[in-house]
């Protein structure tokens, strides 16, 4: 589904991604973990071209999206992003947030888009908030709306950039529950997170990054029980104590 080869990226001459190679299968739930500043969010943002990599290639469904003529919008609507700070459209109601892109990008009629959106809001437990503005919602509710908004595009891949990091502790669970539900539905998910327990639970593969380098990739049971590299051991020791 997604093949990342020799990907590199720097900001103002400072390298944040160094020769990243990884492979994501269709339907796989992948988590990227690592210390702050390790480049995991940047890597995720490269996958739907919110950041433009400096070198290497990303093959999305057989198509090289960094070279040749690729319409950037075509990639993005197939790989939608859920952000740490939700980024719901503030001038739109919850329902409008969810229906906006399907109507504008996929040309759904208002009726079709509304029906689909209500189904999704139902799924994330927020159909009663459809007519509210985001400012009236709690952080956890906002993030669930943001997930519904991304799902409304029927993306093949869902990218989640630290979806619970900006939430109050008591709201983390409601968002994780929604993501957990999705993990069983066959959608490909790439999740950057600090929730180790959750990563262990839901993911098929864990990628550990540090200093812009992809250090280790392994199934979660293996990675958390017996990390192969020194750095991964150190990282796990530091967060588990």
């Amino acid at each position: 589904m997604i093949e990342v080869r020799h990907l590199s990226k720097s900001f103002d001459g400072i390298p944040v991604l160094k020769d990243i190679n990884l492979h994501i299968d269709k339907g796989e739930v992948v988590t990227i973990i690592g210390p702050s500043g390790s480049g995991k969010s940047t890597l995720l943002r490269c996958l739907n071209l919110l950041e433009k990599p400096d070198g290497g290639s990303i093959i999305f469904d057989g198509q090289d999206i960094l070279h040749g003529k690729v319409k950037i919008e075509e990639i993005r609507k197939r790989a939608c992003m859920v952000f740490q700070h939700f980024n719901l459209f503030r001038n739109m109601t919850v329902l409008q947030n969810v229906t906006y892109a399907p109507r504008v990008v996929n040309h759904l009629s208002k009726k079709e888009a509304d029906e689909k959106a209500m189904q999704l809001l139902e799924k994330v437990g927020l159909s009663d908030k459809a007519q509210q503005y985001p400012s009236r919602l709690s952080g956890g509710q906002k993030q669930r709306v943001a997930i519904a908004r991304a799902l409304a595009m029927n993306p093949e891949v869902l990218l989640l950039d630290e979806p619970t990091s900006a939430l109050d502790p008591e709201m983390v669970k409601e968002v994780l529950d929604v993501i957990r539900q999705l993990a069983g539905t066959g959608i490909t998910m790439v999740l950057v997170t600090h929730e180790m327990g959750f990563a262990k639970d839901v993911s098929d593969v864990v990628h550990f990054m540090d200093g812009g380098v992809l250090i280790e990739s392994a199934p979660p049971a293996e990675f958390f029980a017996q990390p192969k590299t020194e750095r991964a051991k150190k990282f796990l020791a530091s967060i588990l104590t």
Binding site: N48, E73, E74, R76, C80, F83, F89, A101, V104
Partner: peptide
């Protein structure tokens, strides 16, 4: 984040500037 959210859903810039950015 408003720009990024609109971009990440595949909305072309001329549309979301009018629908999302300009109203705000």
């Amino acid at each position: 984040g408003q720009w990024e959210a609109a971009m990440s859903l595949g909305v072309p810039p001329y549309r979301f500037v009018l629908d999302v950015i300009l109203p705000q």
